[in-house]
């Protein structure tokens, strides 16, 4: 990474933060997925009277390692560690594809990409800088959302129940493996489609289908059809990371002057 690339990364990030429309999308969606929705789930779980709930039946259906102890706490932790990570995975996809669309198609749309191509940076350096800018934004939004969620949910649980809930190791896999891998895949899809896309909105929609398997995962977990543990998540994460690397290489090969300006 050289100084010229750093200048490009800084400029790309500034372009996002100075665009109120894009910045609000980046802010509102994580807020809804990591604060509002989980808070509703937590509050509902905590407020439902234990006598009228079916927590026991639910826990009996699921292969939870320890089913003893406070049922409400078990259900709460099930929610925190099995359901919410699914919602969470949509954040890096959304943030990085919005950023990649702005960085690649946005520059094309505003006729600033050609000026950039006349700089003494190689095409590969421009590509890497833009990927890194999109990836950084995707990961910054993910981590900021995670810590905001952690703070808010723990505060809510403490206030309502008087204890702190425990986040299990699956979150580590989500944050360090799955999120970066999905982030890269979303960027690669957006960049690959950027040659044909003429508007930022068109490019943003390219990575949307990535959300469908995640929604299926959330519903599956919610309904108890599938249960993914940390081991399985790790395997999935490694697989996605390898796929992301290969996919990104393929996209980089097709990144030529004529193709990007078409």
């Amino acid at each position: 990474m050289n100084r010229k690339q750093l200048a490009l990364i800084k400029k790309d990030i500034k372009a996002i933060t100075s665009n109120k429309q894009i910045f609000s999308v980046m802010f509102i969606m994580p807020l809804a997925l990591t604060i509002v929705l989980p808070s509703i789930l937590v509050i509902v779980t905590m407020m439902v009277p234990e006598a009228s709930s079916d927590y026991r039946e639910l826990l009996d259906l699921l292969p939870v390692a320890s089913q003893g102890g406070d049922e409400r706490k078990l259900v709460l932790e099930l929610m925190l560690n099995k359901i919410i990570p699914g919602f969470f995975l949509m954040i890096p996809i959304m943030a990085s594809s919005v950023m990649a669309a702005s960085s690649f198609v946005g520059e094309k749309e505003k006729h600033t990409l050609e000026t950039l191509l006349y700089s003494p940076l190689t095409l590969d350096e421009i590509f890497r800088a833009k990927i890194l800018a999109s990836f950084s934004v995707g990961m910054i939004v993910s981590f900021a959302s995670f810590f905001a969620m952690l703070t808010v949910l723990e505060a809510e649980i403490f206030l309502l129940a008087g204890y702190f809930a425990s986040f299990d190791i699956a979150w580590l896999v989500v944050m360090l493996l799955l999120s970066p891998a999905l982030c890269l895949i979303a960027i690669a899809i957006t960049v690959r489609g950027s040659a044909k896309a003429q508007t930022i909105e068109e490019a943003q929609q390219l990575a949307v289908f990535l959300v469908f398997p995640i929604i299926a995962l959330v519903i599956g977990q919610f309904a108890g059809v599938i249960m993914i543990n940390a081991g399985l998540l790790s395997l999935l994460g490694v697989g996605l990371a390898v796929f992301a690397a290969v996919f990104m290489k393929g996209v980089a090969r097709k990144f030529t002057y004529e193709r990007v300006l078409r």
């Binding site: 100084r3 010229k4 200048a7 490009l8 400029k11 500034k14 372009a15 100075s18 665009n19 505003k110 006729h111 600033t112 050609e114 000026t115 950039l116 006349y118 700089s119 003494p120 940076l121």
Partner: peptide, 28 residues
């Protein structure tokens, strides 16, 4: 080389000075 073409524009969200500083940085 220095190049001006119809489709080689600069960034609307940056000031005139910031645009020049950005391109200057790209040229090292």
């Amino acid at each position: 080389t220095g190049i001006i073409t119809e489709n080689a524009r600069m960034y609307d969200h940056l000031s005139g000075m910031d645009n020049l500083l950005f391109y200057g940085a790209l040229f090292g």
